[in-house]
Design a protein around this nucleic acid. Structure first.
Lengths: 250, 250
DNA sequence: CGCCCCGTTGAGATCGCTCAACACTAGTGG
DNA sequence: CCACTAGTGTTGAGCGATCTCAACGGGGCG
């Protein structure tokens, strides 16, 4: 697994299934896949579909955690803020990922859309009922959680030990891999995050991110297409940087 | 919750219970607490107690994940290494914490003792059986996992946004709080990690850690007692630094 | 058309790293 | 008992990666 791969977690290896979440009408791989028709019927009772604009919040840090969300369309980012206003992005989420699941009373971080998109909102008490009725769902959540934890640890490693360019390379690779797992076609990938968004995720300033991207471009490793399109023209080099095969040790 | 509090996770809020793990003979709060006597009896069948020396590995990164461990005595650290040899500590673990639980085939990180200590080793297949027999255990693990995830995110925030002194302060506070939750008495706490260990956890060099500790000492915020004793003489200042109320925003 | 947001690039400042010297402690063996 | 050694901690000086501050360009949208 690649470091910085916080993006892949809530889908990876779980989702070639394709159950359809009744009310949402969308493929909701992460959450619904392990359930049969009756279960889905149960669940759709209180789930609601919401359309969201770019930069709109799904929920905010500190909100009572009354719902769990499935991101059905678009890309979101998770952020946590400090008392003095400093802010960091904890991770990014894509279609199929789950947002806001926690046993705590409040959301420990906020989630906001980067693109236009939709989420499927499920009442938390409803989810608890589901757990009691379909214990396999709980196991599913446990697996998701452990994978997510593993990705967080990769991110910790990257933040603690990677140079700026290594972090940006790792981010690009994980972004591209996340889209490939979602059956992306063609050489041009979507990069809806701004330099500032990326910087907040990687613990860098937006200028440093911009410089790294420019450096990759000048080396012929990537090509930018319009405002949010990116193509990896020398993926091997990026992967090597991202994996931490850097100049440090022998 | 304090940033950097990766240390508290696997105990916190779960453990005023005090079931005794039969074979180990030790209080094994995190793992055994939710079980009744019959369940403990079940489990003790294949659990084994192991004594370990300082710097001895409990398991290594890449080892097949055949067992789950409960740290019954001592302090351990979790580390992950990069292909080029760079290494980071993912977290620290104390008596009562669980080590090495994963649904994957291999351990994604290594665990090694910082002090002399003991672990209780449980066969993984045995644990899976337990999950089937006592579903509440699975729920317990899910809660643990989510809390751990939250702590990892705090750590991410710290690595991405905190200055060197803020990170060291946050580490000291979380260390002290972890010991307080374990019914520590007296003003002097145990700090078995070397400057290098702390640095690997915080993404700093050992010199930078040493300088931060010296600065705190010179400001009268802490006092060192012998080689592994530390006393917080101005806890409020440390907490303020650790919480991110720093000089940045207004 | 003009504004605003985003991205790019440059120059200087700064924080933490690197390299190096030295002190202290504990364990070891003479 | 003491010299010796290895590991750890401390401190200093210089360097370098990243941040900060600043200017400028381009594209989308009202």
């Amino acid at each position: 697994m690649h470091p910085l791969d916080a993006t892949r977690v809530l889908m990876d290896g779980l989702g070639s299934d394709s159950s359809v979440c009744m009310k949402c009408g969308s493929r909701s791989v992460g959450l619904c896949a392990p359930l049969d028709a009756a279960a889905l019927d149960d669940m759709s009772g209180e789930s609601e579909r919401l359309a969201l604009e770019p930069r709109e919040a799904v929920f905010r840090q500190g909100d009572p955690a009354r719902h769990v969300y499935t991101l059905t369309e678009g890309m979101a980012r998770l952020t946590r803020v400090l008392p003095d206003g400093r802010q960091a992005a904890i991770g990014f989420r894509f279609a199929g990922d789950i947002l806001g699941f926690t046993p705590e009373a409040e959301h420990a971080f906020g989630a906001e859309m980067l693109t236009r998109g939709t989420v499927c909102r499920l009442d938390r008490r409803r989810l608890e009922q589901m757990f009691r009725r379909y214990p396999i769902m709980e196991r599913r959540f446990l697996d998701l959680c452990v994978r997510e934890l593993s990705a967080s640890q990769d991110h910790i490693l990257a933040l603690g030990r990677f140079s700026a360019e290594e972090r940006v390379a790792a981010f690009l690779i994980s972004l591209v891999e996340a889209q490939e797992r979602r059956a992306h076609v063609g050489p041009v990938f979507d990069l809806p995050a701004t330099r500032a968004d990326i910087g907040e995720f990687l613990g860098l300033t937006l200028e440093t991110v911009s410089r790294a991207v420019s450096a990759f471009r000048k080396r012929g490793w990537i090509r930018l297409h319009g405002h949010s399109g990116i193509e990896l023209t020398d993926r091997a080099s990026l992967v090597s940087l991202a994996a931490g095969e850097g100049a440090h040790a022998a």
